Simulated scan of single mutants.
Amino acid sequence: MLRPLVLTVSGALAAQIPALPAHAARPAAAESSQVVVVAHRGASAYAPENTIAAFEEARRLRADTFELDVQQTRDHQLVLMHDVTLARTTDVEKLFPRRAPWRVGDFTLAEIRRLDAGSWFAPRYKGERVPTLGETLTKLSGSGLDLLLEIKEPRRHPGIEGRIARELRAEPAWLRPGRLTVQSFDWDSARAFHRLLPNVPIGLLGAPSAGRLAGLSRFADEVNPPYASVTAQYVRRVHANHMRVLAWTVNDAATMRRLISAGVDGIITNRPDLLRGITLTARKRPA
């Protein structure tokens, strides 16, 4: 399985390992035909997104990696939430009816802890909470899953890159080789994070033009585009610049097979079980 490579970065662990640039130790992207199965916000087709339940379901369904979104509360705590507001995936409107538009950054962690983040998805998830990043890192540390961490809306959350770096240093298991990639749509934020933990692989969400790939590869390890923009030619150009390609978000078998044929290194999906089945079938075919 092709997994992102990362070196341990700080403290006593770092002192034991010679410092190497991340790119120096990175394998060529096209060396493996096996595709990384990334569970989008956890196994979010089957459990409420960005919750511990969704991440545990991803493990049960044999994902390789789980993806999550990190935002910052009013009191500078890190919580998992995709949307700018809490309205779609919690009962915030019921508990705080006068606090519209219910932006994540307008609430304290204590207030967010009161929210039900599961009932919107299914009654059996009633009482599921919005997890903090720290809780998630601790809970999933021994899961065997790797982590794709997205810095969400960083311009709304000044200083979030440093706070994420501190949380990761507090859980050094995630800084071992192959366990972590940090990505963002905001490439300036991704570059800022790279300066804080330069050996953690960086993913750029979006589809940069071919002319920009060489420059971006100086700090980035992955280009993670929407699936509709992915062609075999584009994948080859990214690989030629020693970066990987993870396409998102794909939930049907035909598109998964097309992307695998195009040479992507991973696929981000709400249905990791479907993608796992396709990868296992492909592996059994005679050469």
Score class of each variant (00 low, 15 high):
residue 3 R to F: 13
residue 7 L to H: 11
residue 8 T to W: 03
residue 9 V to Q: 14
residue 13 L to T: 00
residue 17 I to H: 12
residue 18 P to Y: 04
residue 19 A to T: 10
residue 19 A to F: 12
residue 22 A to F: 03
residue 29 A to T: 01
residue 29 A to K: 01
residue 29 A to G: 14
residue 29 A to R: 11
residue 30 A to C: 02
residue 30 A to V: 00
residue 31 E to C: 01
residue 33 S to C: 05
residue 34 Q to D: 10
residue 35 V to F: 03
residue 36 V to F: 02
residue 37 V to K: 07
residue 39 A to K: 09
residue 41 R to N: 06
residue 42 G to T: 09
residue 46 Y to P: 00
residue 46 Y to R: 10
residue 46 Y to S: 06
residue 47 A to S: 07
residue 50 N to D: 05
residue 50 N to G: 07
residue 51 T to A: 05
residue 53 A to P: 05
residue 54 A to P: 04
residue 56 E to R: 15
residue 58 A to E: 07
residue 59 R to L: 13
residue 62 R to C: 09
residue 63 A to D: 02
residue 64 D to G: 14
residue 64 D to L: 11
residue 65 T to I: 14
residue 66 F to I: 07
residue 69 D to Q: 11
residue 70 V to S: 06
residue 72 Q to K: 13
residue 72 Q to H: 00
residue 74 R to Q: 14
residue 78 L to N: 05
residue 78 L to K: 10
residue 79 V to F: 11
residue 84 V to E: 12
residue 86 L to C: 01
residue 87 A to W: 00
residue 88 R to I: 02
residue 88 R to V: 02
residue 89 T to L: 04
residue 92 V to S: 01
residue 92 V to H: 01
residue 105 G to E: 10
residue 105 G to A: 11
residue 111 E to H: 07
residue 113 R to N: 13
residue 118 G to H: 08
residue 121 F to D: 06
residue 125 Y to K: 01
residue 130 V to R: 06
residue 132 T to R: 10
residue 133 L to I: 11
residue 133 L to V: 11
residue 142 G to S: 08
residue 143 S to M: 04
residue 145 L to N: 12
residue 147 L to K: 05
residue 149 L to W: 10
residue 150 E to W: 06
residue 150 E to I: 04
residue 151 I to W: 08
residue 157 H to C: 07
residue 163 R to N: 00
residue 164 I to F: 05
residue 165 A to I: 02
residue 166 R to I: 00
residue 169 R to M: 13
residue 172 P to A: 02
residue 177 P to F: 13
residue 177 P to Y: 11
residue 178 G to Q: 08
residue 180 L to C: 02
residue 189 S to Q: 08
residue 193 F to C: 09
residue 197 L to D: 03
residue 199 N to L: 04
residue 199 N to E: 12
residue 199 N to W: 09
residue 200 V to G: 09
residue 204 L to P: 08
residue 205 L to P: 08
residue 206 G to V: 08
residue 206 G to H: 06
residue 211 G to Q: 12
residue 214 A to G: 00
residue 215 G to H: 09
residue 218 R to H: 12
residue 219 F to Y: 15
residue 219 F to L: 01
residue 220 A to M: 04
residue 221 D to V: 00
residue 225 P to K: 03
residue 225 P to D: 04
residue 228 A to D: 08
residue 229 S to M: 10
residue 229 S to V: 14
residue 231 T to Q: 07
residue 232 A to Q: 14
residue 233 Q to K: 13
residue 234 Y to Q: 06
residue 235 V to Y: 09
residue 235 V to F: 05
residue 236 R to M: 01
residue 238 V to Y: 02
residue 238 V to D: 09
residue 241 N to R: 10
residue 242 H to Y: 05
residue 244 R to G: 14
residue 246 L to K: 06
residue 250 V to F: 04
residue 252 D to C: 00
residue 253 A to V: 05
residue 255 T to R: 11
residue 260 I to A: 15
residue 261 S to N: 15
residue 262 A to L: 00
residue 263 G to M: 09
residue 268 I to A: 04
residue 271 R to T: 11
residue 273 D to E: 15
residue 278 I to W: 08
residue 278 I to S: 10
residue 283 R to H: 10
